[in-house]
């Protein structure tokens, strides 16, 4: 207990990130997670904090093109990394195809898990392309095809308590089918 009191300003870090194509430099407490760096320091609040413990997926972002939970990563660990958040995928007047499909299929209700679902879906399409297997993959050595069981398994990292799964699966399949 004494250490925390005595700590004072110990543990600050300088982090340079590229977020949504913009170079950002932050002076942070070393304890700041990537999630809080985005939300509280860069005011990119599209990335959501649902649990802060890696149990819900609402904080999913793309780092160097790969999806991770921003809540379980220190900002300091991402010095030099390229981060894409929901704000970087599209804007209300210029939607990413997955964002547009979510609207078309009503693939959300409250909207709080939605940015994470969409970031995850974008990453899933790339993972399938790259041949990353999943729990639902039949033959490990054959090329992966994104059937519904593959899609549902891969999206299972993102909890939606409003229960839009059935529509989310159709929205993502819609985009996958087009690409």
């Amino acid at each position: 207990m004494a250490r925390a009191q005595a700590a004072g300003t110990m543990g600050s870090v300088v982090v340079a990130l590229t977020v949504n194509d913009e170079r950002r430099r932050l002076d942070l407490d070393s304890r700041v997670t990537l999630l809080d760096a985005l939300r509280e320091h860069l005011h990119l609040t599209g990335t959501k904090k649902g649990c802060d413990h890696g149990h819900c997926g609402a904080c999913t972002v793309l780092v160097n093109g790969v999806r991770i939970n921003a809540c379980l990563s220190l900002a300091a660990m991402h010095d030099g990394d390229v981060v894409t958040t929901i704000e970087g995928l599209g804007r209300p007047d210029r939607l990413h195809p997955v964002q547009a499909a979510f609207i078309a299929h009503d693939a959300f209700q409250c909207g709080y898990c939605t940015p994470g679902q969409i970031c995850s879906a974008v990453a899933v399409l790339a993972e399938v392309e790259a041949g990353v297997p999943s729990h639902a993959t039949g033959d490990l050595t054959a090329p992966v095809t994104l059937d519904t069981s593959e899609l549902r398994e891969r999206m299972s990292a993102n909890i939606c308590r409003c229960g839009a799964y059935s529509n989310i699966a159709e929205a993502v399949a819609d985009v996958a089918g087009r690409s």
Binding site: R39, L44, E87, R91, P92, L95, G111
Partner: peptide, 18 residues
């Protein structure tokens, strides 16, 4: 379609802590 949909899918709908 939801008229607030574009805000929600782009992360620009502001919630209480934001």
């Amino acid at each position: 379609r939801r008229i607030d949909g574009a805000l929600k899918v782009t992360g620009t709908a502001p919630y209480a802590y934001e």
